[in-house]
């Protein structure tokens, strides 16, 4: 199938504060939050992006939605370059690609009622007023709020966390998008409520034939709603493949650590020390060679001198680690 979104060498750099010496030398140090990633999203895909805070995963989501500009590389939506998109085409894209906000308690204006919150994207896209009421109500029904009239006149603080997250989804879906980016969609919710939202997202994806891109540090969540997973570390994709394959047979030491770190609801779970130590560094000063090497117990000389490329370790499963390059 044709790719919906394609990225080649996608890079986003932010300026960082300079030292006196750098100012005198007129140097402009930059932090590459996303550093040359390639990505293909086909229609109907459900892709998960995992990594720690500081890996650049939220920036990828913002780039995909054209919420921030590209520094270098290419990013296309249905063959159109996103950085050159304007006018009607851009409005079309804004309708087709929507963001599901992270924290429903902060994302919604506390002074707006639910009607106004959910209808806002319709206003922004210039949809005729006469359609707002029915489309808003339909959208609420879609996310499992069966009696929309009960919610429309309420304010966010009158709803529970689970209901608010449904409102956030309804707001994203009200314009009938085909592509959703969800950034930590359930991280603020209780486990009991989380399960309901994840089921809803899975169900909506099927019913509306959505393409989804889910960003999270939680592999259990990604595993539940994404068929393919990308693992990111300091601006680079270091492993990608089918989600179940990655969880069952992780190839990169970092992915292994991410999986081993998840606590399990089982008293007999292993409690061995993690295979990697320390903390993620700053993308402003990434190490030479493999970016994980200071934290990796398997690092050898080559890891410092040469950055490992992504190579295939199994069909459709690639990893960037010298251990897999014979």
């Amino acid at each position: 199938m044709d790719p919906l979104i394609e990225a080649f060498g996608l890079t986003k750099a932010f300026p960082v504060s300079r030292t006196w010496r750098q100012m005198l030398r007129a140097e402009r140090p930059r932090l590459k939050a996303v550093d040359g990633i390639d990505l293909t999203i086909r229609r109907g895909d459900s892709i998960g992006l995992v990594g720690e805070s500081g890996s650049g995963k939220t920036t990828v989501g913002r780039l995909l939605l054209k919420l921030t500009s590209i520094t270098s590389g290419q990013l296309t939506y249905r063959g159109d370059h996103l950085d050159r998109m304007k006018g009607a085409r851009l409005r079309g894209f804004r309708q087709q690609a929507q963001l599901v906000f992270q924290n429903p308690f902060d994302a919604l204006n506390p002074r707006f009622n639910i009607r106004r919150i959910v209808a806002e994207p319709l206003v922004n896209l210039g949809v005729p007023r006469a359609e707002h009421e029915t489309r808003t109500a339909d959208s609420l029904r879609l996310v499992g709020l069966a009696e929309p009239q009960r919610y429309l006149d309420r304010l966010p603080h009158q709803l529970s966390g689970g209901q608010l997250q449904r409102i956030v989804l309804a707001r994203a879906l009200v314009v009938g998008p085909e592509f959703l980016v969800a950034d930590e969609p359930v991280s603020m919710l209780d486990v009991s409520v989380r399960a309901g939202i994840l089921n809803l997202m899975r169900d909506l994806k099927e019913r509306l034939s959505l393409t989804s891109f889910t960003i999270s540090h939680d592999l259990t969540l990604v595993r539940y709603i994404c068929s393919r997973t990308l693992v990111m570390y300091l601006g680079r994709i270091i492993e990608q493949g089918p989600t179940e394959e990655i969880i069952a047979r992780p190839a990169h030491p970092y992915t292994k650590a991410l999986i081993a770190a998840v606590p399990r609801p089982d008293v007999d779970q292993p409690r061995d020390a993690l295979p990697i130590s320390g903390a993620i560094g700053s993308a402003a000063t990434p190490p030479s060679g493999c970016r994980l090497r200071h934290r990796c117990p398997y690092a050898f000389a080559r890891c410092a001198s040469e950055e490992p490329p992504l190579i295939e370790v199994a069909p459709g499963h690639t990893a960037a680690c010298h251990l897999h390059i014979a």
Binding site: S192, V193, R194, A195, G196, L198, N199, L219, T220, R223, Y224, I247, I259, V262, R264, P265, D266
Partner: peptide
Amino acid sequence: PDLHEPVETLVP
């Protein structure tokens, strides 16, 4: 959910 057990449906 348990990351190391198969999961079909989560029950809220």
